[in-house]
């Protein structure tokens, strides 16, 4: 495979999908507040939720996103650069086979997409991925 820019990005996107980091970076304030509202300030673990997001969004209007958190009761999605950070909350019922869902979201600009999963034991897991939202073409 040629190491074109496109392929290089494709190689790199695998690491972004798992979004495991050692230090929690500072979030935008609104997102911090929204997450605190959900967790009541509880600690956010890592590694328990997978967030699938493209490294570069072809168009910020329609960005495919997937979340997966085995053993989660619900997963909340946030976008820390959007006018309102809340994106969606997925609550899994008794007949849900896997605690996973995919959808398409709007991102106003390059920003972090954050997934927070509430686990069955009441603890919380978090994953974060940066999605670059670009302007293309002649503006048409």
């Amino acid at each position: 495979m040629d190491l074109t820019r496109r392929n290089f990005i494709a190689l790199g996107s695998g690491t972004f999908a798992l979004a495991t980091m050692s230090a929690l970076p500072a979030f935008a304030n609104l997102t911090d507040d929204a997450i605190a509202e959900l967790t009541g300030g509880a600690a956010l673990g890592e590694g328990g939720v997978t967030l699938n997001a493209p490294e570069i969004a072809e168009n910020g209007n329609t960005v495919p996103i997937g979340v997966d958190a085995p053993g989660a009761v619900e997963i909340s999605l946030y976008a820390d650069g959007n006018p309102v950070p809340n994106v969606a909350t997925f609550r899994f019922g008794p007949l849900s086979a896997s605690r996973s869902a995919s959808t398409r979201i709007r991102l106003a600009k390059t920003q972090n997409v954050v997934a927070v999963a509430k686990m069955e034991d009441g603890s919380f897991q978090m994953a974060k991925a940066e999605v670059k939202v670009t302007i293309g073409g002649c503006g048409g």
Binding site: R6, I56, T134, I135, G136, G137, C138
Partner: peptide, 12 residues
Amino acid sequence: EDSYGQMIRADH
């Protein structure tokens, strides 16, 4: 024709 495949800003 002259520039297909290149990037125009971030568009392919």
